[in-house]
Amino acid sequence: MANVLIIDDDNQMRSLLHEAFLLAGIETETAADGSEAERILATHPFKVVITDIVMPDVDGFEVIFLLRQKYPNIAVIAMSGGGRLNATNYLDSARSFGAVAVFQKPLNRKALIAKVQEILGN
């Protein structure tokens, strides 16, 4: 069973991360948006959620907020490619929302995986 959920509206990004984690030996599940994520999270317990910030419908902030409320034990990692604002602005906000780590896109894949491994390892 996967411990890690990846939420990103970009198809390729989702499958890329899935592949990357697979190579690193970590199973992941993916969701395209916040509502799908909610559904998946309800199925079984997760340990880590990696979410993009700028997404249509339910955006990353909402996801983080939701997770903090419903699943306080899940570690949230936020990532962002920026948009109207600087990515760091988004990420700082994400951190204050409760994300344990934030990553800028284009992703430092290794760092992300390392972080997840760190969280899972603890």
Binding site: D10, M13, E19, L23, G81, A87, L107
Partner: peptide, 25 residues
């Protein structure tokens, strides 16, 4: 620019990522 940056970053991210995976594979 702001409008496309986000999507473009995603595209680049995928590009880089998969490429890296390929080099590793």
């Amino acid at each position: 620019a702001g409008g496309i940056a986000h999507d473009f970053n995603n595209i680049l991210g995928s590009l880089t990522g998969y490429c890296e995976l390929a080099t590793e594979t």
